[in-house]
Protein backbone atom coordinates (compact mmCIF):
# COMPACT_ATOMS: atom_id res chain seq x y z
CA UNK A 1 0.00 0.00 0.00
CA UNK A 2 1.22 3.52 -0.86
CA UNK A 3 2.20 5.84 1.98
CA UNK A 4 -0.22 8.75 2.57
CA UNK A 5 2.60 11.25 1.95
CA UNK A 6 3.20 9.76 -1.52
CA UNK A 7 -0.48 10.22 -2.37
CA UNK A 8 -0.44 13.78 -1.00
CA UNK A 9 2.69 14.66 -3.01
CA UNK A 10 1.17 13.16 -6.14
CA UNK A 11 -2.01 15.20 -5.68
CA UNK A 12 -0.08 18.42 -4.98
CA UNK A 13 2.22 17.75 -7.95
CA UNK A 14 -0.80 17.25 -10.21
CA UNK A 15 -2.42 20.47 -8.99
CA UNK A 16 0.94 22.27 -9.31
CA UNK A 17 1.35 21.09 -12.91
CA UNK A 18 -2.17 22.34 -13.69
CA UNK A 19 -1.30 25.78 -12.25
CA UNK A 20 1.91 25.88 -14.32
CA UNK A 21 -0.14 24.98 -17.41
CA UNK A 22 -2.60 27.78 -16.58
CA UNK A 23 0.27 30.31 -16.43
CA UNK A 24 1.72 28.94 -19.67
CA UNK A 25 -1.70 29.07 -21.33
CA UNK A 26 -2.31 32.65 -20.27
CA UNK A 27 1.13 33.84 -21.37
CA UNK A 28 0.98 32.17 -24.76
CA UNK A 29 -2.01 33.71 -26.50
CA UNK A 30 -3.70 31.46 -29.01
CA UNK A 31 -3.64 32.55 -32.66
CA UNK A 32 -7.41 33.17 -32.51
CA UNK A 33 -7.14 35.36 -29.41
CA UNK A 34 -4.22 37.30 -30.82
CA UNK A 35 -5.86 37.93 -34.17
CA UNK A 36 -9.12 38.98 -32.44
CA UNK A 37 -7.28 41.44 -30.18
CA UNK A 38 -5.29 42.89 -33.09
CA UNK A 39 -8.44 43.18 -35.24
CA UNK A 40 -10.20 44.99 -32.39
CA UNK A 41 -7.28 47.36 -31.91
CA UNK A 42 -7.29 48.04 -35.66
CA UNK A 43 -11.03 48.80 -35.48
CA UNK A 44 -10.38 51.24 -32.61
CA UNK A 45 -7.68 52.98 -34.67
CA UNK A 46 -9.77 53.03 -37.84
CA UNK A 47 -12.93 54.42 -36.21
CA UNK A 48 -11.12 56.50 -33.58
CA UNK A 49 -13.04 54.80 -30.76
CA UNK A 50 -12.34 55.84 -27.20
CA UNK A 51 -14.50 53.55 -25.06
CA UNK A 52 -15.80 50.03 -24.56
CA UNK A 53 -19.43 49.57 -25.47
CA UNK A 54 -20.53 48.13 -22.15
CA UNK A 55 -23.22 50.38 -20.67
CA UNK A 56 -25.24 52.36 -23.19
CA UNK A 57 -27.81 53.86 -20.84
CA UNK A 58 -26.29 57.28 -20.35
CA UNK A 59 -23.55 59.39 -21.91
CA UNK A 60 -21.14 59.08 -19.02
CA UNK A 61 -21.46 55.30 -18.82
CA UNK A 62 -21.30 54.75 -22.60
CA UNK A 63 -18.24 56.99 -22.95
CA UNK A 64 -16.80 57.33 -19.44
CA UNK A 65 -13.51 58.67 -20.76
CA UNK A 66 -15.30 61.49 -22.61
CA UNK A 67 -17.64 62.44 -19.77
CA UNK A 68 -18.01 66.07 -18.75
CA UNK A 69 -15.88 66.81 -15.75
CA UNK A 70 -17.88 69.00 -13.42
CA UNK A 71 -21.55 69.14 -14.42
CA UNK A 72 -24.29 67.44 -12.40
CA UNK A 73 -24.71 63.71 -13.12
CA UNK A 74 -21.70 63.89 -15.42
CA UNK A 75 -19.08 63.43 -12.78
CA UNK A 76 -15.51 62.45 -13.29
CA UNK A 77 -14.93 59.15 -15.09
CA UNK A 78 -14.10 57.14 -11.99
CA UNK A 79 -17.30 58.13 -10.18
CA UNK A 80 -20.00 55.68 -9.15
CA UNK A 81 -22.94 55.31 -11.50
CA UNK A 82 -26.09 57.26 -10.75
CA UNK A 83 -28.00 55.21 -13.28
CA UNK A 84 -28.72 51.56 -12.56
CA UNK A 85 -26.77 50.61 -15.66
CA UNK A 86 -23.62 48.79 -14.76
CA UNK A 87 -24.62 48.70 -11.12
CA UNK A 88 -25.56 45.82 -8.86
CA UNK A 89 -29.28 46.22 -9.56
CA UNK A 90 -30.63 43.76 -12.12
CA UNK A 91 -32.45 45.04 -15.23
CA UNK A 92 -36.18 45.74 -15.00
CA UNK A 93 -38.31 42.71 -15.99
CA UNK A 94 -39.83 44.32 -19.08
CA UNK A 95 -36.40 44.60 -20.66
CA UNK A 96 -35.87 40.86 -20.40
CA UNK A 97 -39.36 39.93 -21.58
CA UNK A 98 -39.08 37.99 -24.83
CA UNK A 99 -41.20 39.30 -27.66
CA UNK A 100 -41.61 38.57 -31.32
CA UNK A 101 -38.88 40.15 -33.43
CA UNK A 102 -40.55 41.62 -36.46
CA UNK A 103 -37.76 43.98 -37.42
CA UNK A 104 -36.35 43.14 -40.81
CA UNK A 105 -39.18 40.69 -41.56
CA UNK A 106 -41.83 43.16 -42.65
CA UNK A 107 -42.19 44.22 -46.27
CA UNK A 108 -42.35 47.94 -45.50
CA UNK A 109 -39.62 49.66 -43.51
CA UNK A 110 -40.33 49.27 -39.80
Amino acid sequence: MRRPSTLAFMMLALLGVLVVLIFAHSWQLTVTDQSRLLANRALVTQLGLTDLSLFSESRYTRHPSQADLHSALQDHPGAFDHFPTGSLISPPAHLNKPHERLAGKTTSPD
Binding site: I22, F23, H25, S26, W27, L29, D33, R36, L37, S53, L54, F55, S56, E57, T61, T85, G86, S87, S90, P91, L95
Partner: peptide, 15 residues
Protein backbone atom coordinates in the same frame (compact mmCIF):
# COMPACT_ATOMS: atom_id res chain seq x y z
CA UNK B 1 -23.18 44.83 -14.95
CA UNK B 2 -25.95 45.07 -17.48
CA UNK B 3 -27.33 47.26 -20.23
CA UNK B 4 -30.19 46.88 -22.67
CA UNK B 5 -27.68 46.29 -25.45
CA UNK B 6 -25.12 44.22 -23.66
CA UNK B 7 -22.31 42.77 -25.76
CA UNK B 8 -21.46 39.08 -25.77
CA UNK B 9 -17.73 38.71 -25.31
CA UNK B 10 -15.18 36.11 -24.30
CA UNK B 11 -12.18 37.30 -22.37
CA UNK B 12 -8.63 36.41 -23.32
CA UNK B 13 -7.07 34.40 -20.46
CA UNK B 14 -4.73 36.66 -18.51
CA UNK B 15 -3.04 35.95 -15.19
Amino acid sequence: GWAVLYPRFALVPTV
